[in-house]
Design a protein around this nucleic acid. Sequence first.
DNA 1: TAATGGTCCTGTTTGC
DNA 2: TGCAAACAGGACCATT
Length: 278
Amino acid sequence: MVRRGLQDHVAGRVVSRVEVMHPRAIRRHLPGTVDFGGRVAGHELVAARRRGKYLWVDLSSGEAVLAHLGMSGQMLVQPPGTPDEKHLRVRLTFADDGPELRFVDQRTFGGLSVEPVVTVDGVPLPAPIAHIARDPMDPAFDRTAAIAALRRRRTEVKRALLDQTLVSGIGNIYADEALWHARLHWARPTDTLTPRKTGELLDAATAVMNAALDVGGTSFDALYVNINGQSGYFDRSLNAYGQEGLPCPRCGRAIQREPFMNRSSFSCPRCQPRPTTS
DNA sequence: TAATGGTCCTGTTTGC
DNA sequence: TGCAAACAGGACCATT
């Protein structure tokens, strides 16, 4: 959705000015703020692209502006003169004096950088994400290869699911939902999963991502290049994530919360029994 | 305070 | 046997 918004609202436009309000938002751009501005200003934003959780916009210079929204990042398209958002980090102004592009991020876990473009398997990608796997929405996504990659990892299934070098785009929330659909506990070792079951899990993750995109789509405003999928989707469509103590929509047993990698995993103790060995 | 998501860094294992 | 690459796991970031 964000990619689509960028494509519709800023592709084909020439950047006239770059303002970085918070240096942390540009921390991945190692040459610094001045260099960042110099590589973006004066160039046309050619096309918006996405892989997994990364977004980028090709520049007419041949480089690309790479973005990660982190937990709280937003891309907004606002008319010039609109009051600055509290957490406005970067503003791009255009030569046509039309709407500005604003990167707003409360926690600044996300950020922007200008990167060279490299070719991987015939596909142009910003260099830092050359190792990121295709996401399930990618037309060239190889489901069989992804299943094999997930099963090859010697770890817990949720860790494999979150590994962006195996399949990209799946985060903590989508992982919990996919595991719930596939009736798998997050700590299940990957080497106990059949290809069929792994495929079921992967398909569930894909369905959750598509559902989130659909909901994000309905909240799309002409001026807003989306607000990260959070809107109505969180409250309405989640079966396990964040539902501690609430009944499992499938069997009625209370959803449990367990610590996982300095955060949480939510699951149904009945539908998703913990594996017997640890 | 403890909780949040996604790297990203570091120590370990594997493979040539 | 030695080295580099791949792997696995946990720390860390800012904010409320």
